[in-house]
Design a binder for these strands. Structure first.
Lengths: 343, 343
DNA sequence: CTGAAAGCGCTTACAG
DNA sequence: CTGAAAGCGCTTACAG
């Protein structure tokens, strides 16, 4: 592997000059620059990132900390991060956190070992002690899909998204609307609550009552959705529409409805949440969370924090989008195709 | 940030001694070791990875190159990689390759820029030129889910897996069995062919004929599976069982069968391929590809290549597992529960 | 605009 | 067993 010294010799200049050409220093004579560039090309020289990191005092590396859960579209999020990184040439170190135990250790190491120039936490709130340590060390940090008073972040406004979906049902003419959600998860504690608030706000806004029996918390699985249908159909006045907190549960809702001989959307309108791949195939109306944008804006924010820390910390809210497909219609409307019909 | 010099001063020793203690050099007096360790703890010292990388000539970093496709269980694979890395303290740099254009560039950079101590290619075959460059540079490389004559690798034996699934159907008593698969994808060119070979081998072994009309290539989507059912049912003698090359298509097969008023598994036994999350919920009998093990063994192999390159290159084949659930039974057997029943 | 030199924070023969 | 010193490959004031 040729070093900067080889290039200098080859170009007949000092190593300092080579370095200046390589890092785009403005005050270099065009002719010199050309000679150096030619030498670099001839030798196939690539600077050593380790030496550079040591001399510059920065690693040119960004660290992404993600929980290792298949469920959420983390792949899509990483795509967004890649997008945001496309122009820069930062390297990406991905640290995954699985079990609480591993999590503790990972967090403990963070401010210390990590030589990244910045850190993105995805769907995770670091312990207060870590937050303060990172702040003291002036390590640029951005939270994605989470918030903290002292840290900049990008998150999705689930409350607004749920309200949007609820309003869609109300506008179709539904009055008895249920919310089926799942228990708060360790990694995303606030989300179901946010959705409930948005749901209730939209209902209140339309002057509609939310009956307690229409707020169901079920297992995060198709079976959970199926059980919700059983519960709802047992009510004296079953809802005509339901907002489901996850597409996974919504699949179960559709299936149980069909088993009961009822039709979607005629007898029950269904809106999911998340827009997983399956939802497109089965024609589920759902809320699409802009996961990719979360990633993209997260890096953008981190890059800007590295250049100039924001104070007070920047906070950005992304809004989700309602994807209307074939599982919602006016109450009793049998003209829509139902779900999982061939196009 | 304290440096090794601060630690040396604090412990009253030379920096060389601190370095030896830190890197676990055996010949250090216990008392000295203790003094150094105390100083390290007191100062909260952490070695600079950049300086270490420069001095040692290795980065203690592994690079994973993955295509950014949601479909395949890459998250699970990364989990496996994490598992395999648990003991070592290598850092992981993940490079994703999306479009062919970006792919070209990424590959070109690889041998050059990358200062990783080793590279894992997941589901990707690097261009021959890159392979040779990496070999010349003596860069340890492992292929996961792919093979190359000059490179060590871990892959799944799809041929054996398909044969296994086919034998399961044959043993249940099926004679007319169809294979529904999808076209070869850019990233996984050989897989459908491997499956077909395994399918045909198992059929031949049982003395069963494979009729050409029972080899269907359909779109990789539920709709593709639905279309396959239409085609099969139009045959004079429709198959009684089908092996489907992806769980996604299998979902469509189940749905179309139900639409036709037929029951699974009584009227059609169905085996999927991949064991996606949904399959568990709908009770689909399927082939589970040991994705996590691929990751785990991939790193293990890379670590061993770093220590001692294998020659000729090690090649490991992992076998897939048949998960029998509720979509397979003997022809005409109505005693099984069908799919998507509550437990 | 450019060269020579110090310095980034480690590791590792080399002596002792 | 341990210290002093050279060296890893860059960057960056400092002169000129």
């Amino acid at each position: 592997m040729p070093t900067i010294r080889d290039v200098a010799r080859e170009a007949g200049v000092g190593v300092g000059t080579v370095s200046r050409v390589l890092s785009g220093h403005p005050r270099v004579a065009p002719a010199t620059r050309a000679r150096v560039e030619a030498a670099v090309a001839r030798l196939g020289y690539r600077p050593s990132s380790a030496a550079r990191a040591l001399a510059r005092g920065q690693s040119h590396t960004l660290e992404v900390v993600v929980p290792l859960i298949t469920r959420h579209g983390y792949v899509e999020l990483l795509r967004g991060i890649e997008d945001g990184l496309a122009e820069s040439d930062y390297a990406l170190v991905i640290r995954t956190i699985e079990r609480p135990a591993a999590r503790e250790r990972a967090f403990t190491d963070l401010g210390h070992t990590s030589r990244a120039d910045g850190i993105i936490f995805v769907s995770l709130t670091p312990p207060e002690e870590v937050v303060q340590r990172l702040r003291q060390a002036r390590m640029p940090v951005v939270l994605v899909d989470r918030e903290h008073p002292d840290l900049p972040g990008v998150a999705v406004d689930h409350e607004a998204a749920a309200a949007l979906a609820t309003r869609h049902l109300i506008e179709l003419g539904h009055r008895r609307i249920a919310l089926v959600d799942h228990p708060a998860e360790g990694l995303t504690p606030g989300v179901p609550e946010d959705r409930r608030r948005g749901f209730q706000a939209a209902m209140a806004e339309a002057g509609l009552a939310v009956r307690p029996e229409n707020l169901l918390v079920m297992d995060l699985s198709p079976e959970g959705g199926m059980a919700a249908v059983e519960t709802m159909l047992a009510l004296p006045e079953p809802p005509t529409a339901v907002l489901v907190g996850s597409d996974t549960q919504a699949v179960g809702v559709l299936e149980a409805t069909r088993r009961r001989g009822l039709r979607v959307p005629r007898d029950l309108a269904v809106v999911g949440y998340g827009d997983i791949e399956m939802s497109h195939h089965i024609g589920l109306t759902t809320v699409r969370v802009p996961v990719r944008d979360l990633g993209r804006q997260g890096v953008a924010m981190l890059l800007s924090e590295i250049t100039a820390p924001s104070s007070p910390p920047t906070r950005t809210w992304l809004s989700a989008e309602l994807i209307v497909r074939r599982t919602t219609a006016a109450p009793g409307d049998g003209s829509r195709g139902g779900w999982l019909t061939l196009p």
